[in-house]
Design a protein around this nucleic acid. Structure first.
Lengths: 357, 357
DNA sequence: AATTTGAACGAAAACGATTTCATGATATGC
DNA sequence: GCATATCATGAAATCGTTTTCGTTCAAATT
């Protein structure tokens, strides 16, 4: 493969000069520059990023660690990250941790080994210990969608507590009194924040918080199904379920239907997170929708600002608001009220004409 | 950051020996190996992949270029690729081309600059010219979901022609005679293959192929909407639409509903590709479903085999079959017939209990 | 006219690993 | 017991850039 030396030879200059031309540094005579650029074009020369990175100690790459790229929420976050990064000629490599601490650890070490300039991570544990690899080496880091205890690091998250509270308030307003919560792992701040929001809504309405109605598992469909199943079996007077993310909601739907109950007639369901495209199509699931794309953009922008040395002095904690999108799974046919914002096209309160199942 | 020399010093050996230990090469005395491993652990040493790559000329990374990571089909492909790659300690960096040739070109050059060991690409043009960067430099390449004219390169694709044919045959069997097709860009083999399948099904049924019923645009929701709108306006006797991918289908649904028609009562709709999670939830869209995850896995495995020197001699053209999943958007309440395979849980022919919209 | 400045460029070092080649020690074969 | 193979290790070269430090020469300053 052609190297900078080949280009230099062809242009009749030294490699340094070629380097200067490529990095558009000063002190190159216009005519020399043209000669070099011509040589580059003629040879189809593409610089070796690896060598460049070794010497300059910057790779222009970011590592993005998230639970599962298959979940539309994370996909959208990833897209936001990539778009922001690409605008500044940064490369993003995506790692699926599957919320597995060991996989996460492996990928973090990989990110350090690869000398990623920065890391964006939806940590699977809110304890800072898991991020020691990054902290020790002072790798610029932005945490997405999670809070971290014990490390004051940049983070970008959705308003989990507020979103959960709004969803449960909505259920309460519809007359529900026995509302269960199916959340993620207790070690995840996001899961706990959503439980907090759930409890707060109940407390504010003067309703008791029944611990037996709060279940925790993985942020996964199978966990959602299992927990919903046991809830339905054990709590006979249950009338509504709050699912702490979209995957859990899917599982819960399966469990409810499998138990011979109907949604929303017998069991109302609300969920955190959405299904982007699908929700647009099937006006079904009432959800607190996080601005996933913006979260990705913001996180990447913050990280890139730090890399450019132009970031804010103190670590930032950016909390983006959620939209409450009222659809049919909670039984409400009403437009959203004062506290809520809705997707204009989907909150018609009516099924799409033509689809009757 | 600690280097191999630091480790060597601490273990009382030379850097070469440390390198040998890390690469588990032969010719290291067990006790030396232990000393080195201890030094590595004590220092928390993580090798610098950049330096390693420069010297060894292998980066253990793959570039994955696809239209849009936001589309559930591509997400699932990406996940398959990543899982296969990760098993062999390869890193994947994902690039969204948005089907834009210039963006694609930029990313290809980036992949070469980064010295990716291999490239997986859903090329936005079936002409081999766009891939010259790769071909000239003999970068191991696997093309996903597309055929390439003029370069006999490895590729993994779904049976577009067969899937489209099956979908249209199904419509014909349901009694439809005026069936439109909304496809992707003519430059994309996948789009054209699906048109071919559509035509073949019509021809085999002795039906005329009406060119005015075949429309082409981007593989996007907005294109699908626009083309469907014009079709509905211009072809009054239309009773069914075949959408060449999921995004187009979404747009088509919007257009049909906006025109005051119902699905499937007034217009039947079938589509290529699915919405993974959602389709499981809402038994709506009749689709030819490609094995996206397997496509990603297979493609990565083929590429990695080539990199390991163990690949097949000749370029492979792997065509994976699609499943025809019959749901409600086509008006059929029947289980799939002999030629078709169905998702057991969704093809009940009945709406989910509880959801009446 | 002598001195200073800075533009334009190059030589050599450096980045941190791996690869190649060399060396002494030990084991093996006959 | 001697030649030969193999083991265990290290010194030096190398990968392709960027950085650092000079050097030359022309223009500006005094």
């Amino acid at each position: 493969m052609t190297t900078i030396t080949d280009v230099a030879r062809r242009a009749g200059v030294s490699p340094v000069t070629v380097s200067r031309v490529m990095n558009s540094a000063a002190h190159v005579r216009p005519e020399t520059r043209v000669r070099v650029e011509q040589a580059i074009a003629e040879l189809g020369y593409l610089p070796n990023t690896v060598a460049r990175s070794l010497r300059s100690k910057r790779t222009r790459s970011l590592a993005l660690l998230l639970p599962d790229i298959t979940n539309p929420f994370w996909t959208t976050v990833a897209r936001g990250v990539e778009d922001s990064a690409q605008a500044l000629d940064y490369t993003v490599f995506v790692c699926n941790t599957d919320e597995d601490p060991r996989k996460q650890q492996r990928y973090l070490e990989l990110a350090v080994s690869q000398r990623a300039d920065g890391v964006l991570i939806a940590a699977c544990h809110s304890d800072a210990a898991a991020l020691r690899v990054l902290r020790e080496r002072e790798v610029p880091t932005v945490v997405i969608d999670r809070r971290i205890e014990g490390w004051d690091v940049d983070c970008v998250l959705g308003d989990s507590t507020g979103g959960a509270r709004a969803l449960v308030q909505h259920l309460i307003a519809l007359g529900h009194r026995r509302i269960a919560a199916i959340s993620g792992p207790a070690a995840t701040s996001t899961a706990e924040d959503r439980v907090t929001g759930y409890c707060r809504a109940l407390a504010e309405a003067g309703l008791p918080v029944d611990d037996s109605l709060i279940r925790r598992g993985q942020f996964r469909t199978c966990a959602g199904e299992e927990l919903a199943r046991s809830l339905l079996a054990e709590a006979g007077d249950l009338t509504a379920i709050f699912a702490a993310n979209n995957a859990i909601a899917l599982g819960a739907i399966d469990a409810v239907l499998a138990a011979g109950r109907r949604i929303p007639h017998d069991i109302a369901l609300v969920a955190f997170d959405d299904f982007v495209d699908c929700s647009h199509l099937f006006p079904f699931l009432t959800a607190a929708v996080q601005p996933a794309y913006d979260m990705g953009c913001e996180a990447a922008r913050l990280l890139l600002a730090r890399l450019a040395g132009s970031g804010p002095a103190r670590p930032q904690h950016i909390v983006l608001p959620c939209r409450l999108v009222v659809r049919h799974s909670c039984g409400s046919r009403l437009h959203a009220g004062a506290e809520t914002l809705s997707l204009p096209s989907t909150v018609t309160g009516l099924p799409l004409p033509g689809y009757r199942g």
